[in-house]
């Protein structure tokens, strides 16, 4: 049984896993960090997106053993040090970028990866980047708006839909 060690949201973790243990299962079942959601378990919905060594990955489609030694960031580590929402999270709240909230952890993690790579994306670039994140409530409009707002761009001209 492989032993894995990884730094999750800045904290050292380790555990015994099976070869087949998915990174999402390690986070949720071994570490009790259930902020990372598993929606489809078929790598389509993106609710399970986390960052591994800074890159967005679908944690339901990566083995925990593959992340051995890696730095992993999840939704639980996104808030500011004082516990307040970070810029992206606050923008989701301000612009009503969530309804049921199930997809939101993945949306926020994908948005964070996008803004790191492309700090001032266009609306189309945001929509393209969210290709692997499904939301069944919002129709995406307010998610896109929230991410554009989080990038510091004026979204006043984007109509509410």
């Amino acid at each position: 049984m492989p032993q894995v060690s990884m730094t999750v949201n800045g904290k050292a973790t380790s555990g015994d896993v099976e070869g087949r243990t998915l990174l999402s299962a390690y986070l949720r079942d071994h570490l009790g960090m259930t902020g990372t959601h598993v929606g489809c378990d078929t790598s389509q919905c993106g609710a399970c997106v986390v960052h591994v060594n800074g890159e967005a990955v679908k944690s339901c489609t990566m083995f925990a053993a593959e992340a051995d030694g890696a730095t992993v960031d999840t939704i639980e580590g996104q808030a500011n040090a004082d516990g307040s929402l970070n810029v992206i999270q606050q923008a989701f709240q301000d612009h009503h970028g969530l309804q049921c909230g199930f997809c939101t952890p993945g949306m926020v993690m994908s948005a964070a990866a996008l803004l790191k790579e492309n700090p001032k994306p266009t609306e189309q670039e945001v929509r393209d980047y969210l290709e692997g994140n499904l939301c069944r409530c919002t129709g995406y409009h307010n998610i896109v708006k929230a991410i554009l707002a989080a990038s510091g761009q004026d979204v006043g001209a984007i109509a509410a839909e």
């Binding site: 967005a56 990955v57 679908k58 489609t61 980047y129 290709e131 692997g132």
Partner: peptide, 9 residues
């Protein structure tokens, strides 16, 4: 190919 997270793996 796929989406950004898929392209990273």
């Amino acid at each position: 190919i796929g989406d950004p997270a898929v392209r990273n793996r």
